[in-house]
Nucleic acid binder design. Structure first.
Lengths: 171, 171
DNA sequence: CTAATAAGTCTTGTAATAAGACTATGTCAA
DNA sequence: TTGACATAGTCTTATTACAAGACTTATTAG
């Protein structure tokens, strides 16, 4: 299979990977989340070939994941900032980080500590169910194709219902 | 930077990506989660070059993400099954799937529906804080290097404390 | 002996990447 | 007005990875 064809696959993972699934894109986005914004800063931080960095940034801007915004004039210079679509990738990145923390940290523990400012604690990410709010291990999930209109309706309902923890049914 | 050097980086995302960050590995793991287990089934499902599939499976076995277990003898044939370490990648995959659902689904909605068997509902994944159980958007997270012993202790506490929803403080 | 099945390995042409030189645009200081 | 500096790229070349498909090995069935 050619890489370009992945975008047209009938699978959301394939479509996501057609954008994110190369050697550098997620590293670039990690830096973006750490507030790196300029071409040369990405280059020095990642030690990436300039040609590849240039291509990837253009792709990410094209996809609406980063936005190119001017930060000075004469000469006009641009920096790259995460859009909402880009910020929505945070679950992907933090899940990967915490998987790496669990399996590849040395004896000193994970290299970076994440603090949830809303509650003030250092934390690990936990995947939970949008419907009941409980943690969801892989074995508790069943997958099926969204073939019928009925199943598509159920899916849309789930997608738009707020997380239970955001609006408890009994305050 | 060479790809091999990523494994030694002082960053859990880099270390994770040194295993997962190529064009095919996450697609192979998606199939594994969908209960594909045999070489030829992976090949036909993914239309991946056999050489590359062979390399990737060997790497994943090497990393302890897949296990090669015999399913028949004369001749001995092996299949590839997710280990616990592999199952722990589910948050990464489902986060990517739901991001793809959100931004790349056509008018018919997402192609696959995920059901949480514990509660019986179709659901979307939500990243929550291991400490307070609330959803965690990117802007609510601060990151710092785990430099001091004190901060490392706090990190370990967070890593081993059960999720609030698993053990409610007031039942 | 021949075909079929499963799980690979090997070969060859094409595409992507790494490293670093080169270009474009404009500032500032001598 | 020349030269050094800064930022953000593009271009070139050698190396590496991938795609497609033929070939190999081991075993059973007919």
């Amino acid at each position: 299979m050619r890489w370009d064809n992945l975008k047209k696959e009938h699978c959301s993972l394939a479509r996501s990977l057609s954008v994110l699934g190369d050697r550098w894109t997620l590293m670039i986005l990690r830096d973006a989340f750490l507030r790196v914004r300029r071409f040369e800063d990405f280059e020095q931080s990642l030690k990436i070939a300039r040609r590849v960095l240039s291509e990837r940034l253009a792709l990410l801007v094209d996809e609406g994941i980063l936005a190119k915004v001017p930060y000075q004039e004469r000469p006009t210079r641009y920096e790259y900032r995460l859009t909402e679509k880009g910020l929505d990738l945070y679950p992907v990145i933090i899940s990967m980080v915490h998987w790496g923390d669990k399996y590849y940290a040395g004896k000193d523990g994970p290299p970076m500590i994440h603090t949830h400012v809303a509650c003030g604690h250092d934390f690990k990410s936990v995947i939970t169910c949008s419907e009941c709010g409980d943690p969801v291990p892989a074995r508790d999930v069943r997958v099926r194709a969204s073939a019928t209109p009925a199943s598509r309706n159920r899916a849309r309902t789930a997608a738009t219902r707020p997380h239970p923890k955001s609006q408890p049914s009994r305050a």
